[in-house]
């Protein structure tokens, strides 16, 4: 059996691009050191920040939650978790269960928002009514609720679970389709827009997908091993993931090189030319006078449901009884 290159204990992983074996303890420390370095290198979090971590119940958000809850003591920031109950049958029941267990284990306050409670419909029902693909409606609703909760919490950053593999693939897809302005949004962090949107950070920017899985497993963070039933494994993203990982096996370190260079050049990519304005219904970020969530829900129910979502989220946030925020980054 292979031995840890640091302590000689039984190895659980081989870090191919560093040509070293690591035992469970040193592997966990190694992933945390990558996250710590990314937080510092890309100036993701400052002392006193309130960071919202959306948790889906999957391995990547489990890894972000565990690592940030440990690092919060070292860096002096606060972590709050959010789970969105999408209503996708048994998968959502198990996802919620895993998220609650993870937050409880770590002692992190958790907000659970139910899409059905806000809109009267589950995600598959909303998609059917809107005659749109489930994943497109799901993405729209999740992005809206995450930003809404972050705004209502007075959070300074939203920590997403995108890992190095995800980001490499998204940027490759954007390059293939020549949607270059999308690449400008794939860096380690995006800035807050005062009063409208909270900036996003990606603590797993340099953490490979396999490392994220092993970290969640070895830290015994509860997570769901199942995939969403709507995942399309023949999608371009998933095919590119297989290709980039074949290349990584042949040329260890290629993903890290790509992402570090992308972070350096992120400003060279054109920014999306969408105007920034405020939704006339809910007051949050919009590219016109109505945000896409209010537009979607108005089409389905006859009413824009952003204001109702704000009401529900405000009462959930109040029930956490967190210290009030005076000077968060998003506020004007």
């Amino acid at each position: 059996m292979a031995k840890c290159s640091i302590c000689g204990g039984p190895a659980v992983a081989y870090i191919r691009y560093q040509r070293r074996y690591l035992c469970d303890r040193h592997f966990v420390e190694y992933v945390e050191s990558k996250i710590r370095r990314a937080i510092s290198r890309y100036k993701m979090i400052r002392q006193g920040y309130r960071v919202l971590v959306p948790v889906s119940g999957g391995k990547d958000s489990a890894t972000v939650l565990t690592a940030l809850s440990k690092l919060s003591r070292e860096f002096g920031f606060e972590v709050v978790a959010l789970h969105i109950d999408l209503g996708i049958g048994d998968y959502s029941v198990k996802s919620k269960e895993a998220s609650i267990k993870a937050a409880n284990k770590l002692g992190v306050p958790l907000i659970v928002v139910s899409v059905k409670e806000i809109t009267g419909y589950t995600i598959p029902e909303l998609a059917r009514k809107a005659r749109r693909p489930v994943c497109s409606v799901c993405g729209l609703v999740k992005r809206y609720i995450i930003n809404l909760v972050a705004v209502e919490l007075g959070a300074d950053a939203v920590a997403l679970g995108h890992n190095a593999d995800d980001l490499a693939v998204y940027s490759m897809k954007s390059f293939i389709t020549q949607d270059l302005s999308n690449i400008s949004k794939l860096g380690p962090k995006t800035e807050s827009i005062k009063g409208l949107a909270v900036g996003r950070i990606r603590p797993l920017y340099e953490v490979y997908e396999k490392e994220s899985y092993l970290y969640a497993l070895l830290t015994e963070t509860p997570f769901l091993h199942e995939e969403c039933p709507n995942v399309d494994f023949s999608s371009m993203e998933n095919r590119l993931k297989v290709h980039i990982n074949s290349l990584e096996e042949e040329k260890p370190g290629v993903k890290i090189t790509m992402l570090r260079n992308m972070a350096k050049r992120i400003r060279d990519y054109p920014k999306p030319q969408l105007p920034i304005s405020r939704c006339r219904h809910c007051g949050l970020l919009s590219s016109g006078d109505e945000c896409s969530f209010c537009r979607l829900t108005k089409r389905i129910t006859g009413q824009p449901l952003g204001p109702r979502a704000r009401e529900v989220v405000r009462s959930l946030v109040a029930s956490l009884q967190l210290a009030p925020r005076q000077d968060s980054a998003y506020k004007s």
Partner: peptide
């Protein structure tokens, strides 16, 4: 391959060799 999968033996990850 070595990047896309992990082998667990009795629930614990093992290295490729």
């Amino acid at each position: 391959n070595s990047e896309s999968g992990v082998v667990l033996v009795n629930g614990r990850p093992v290295t490729e060799d």
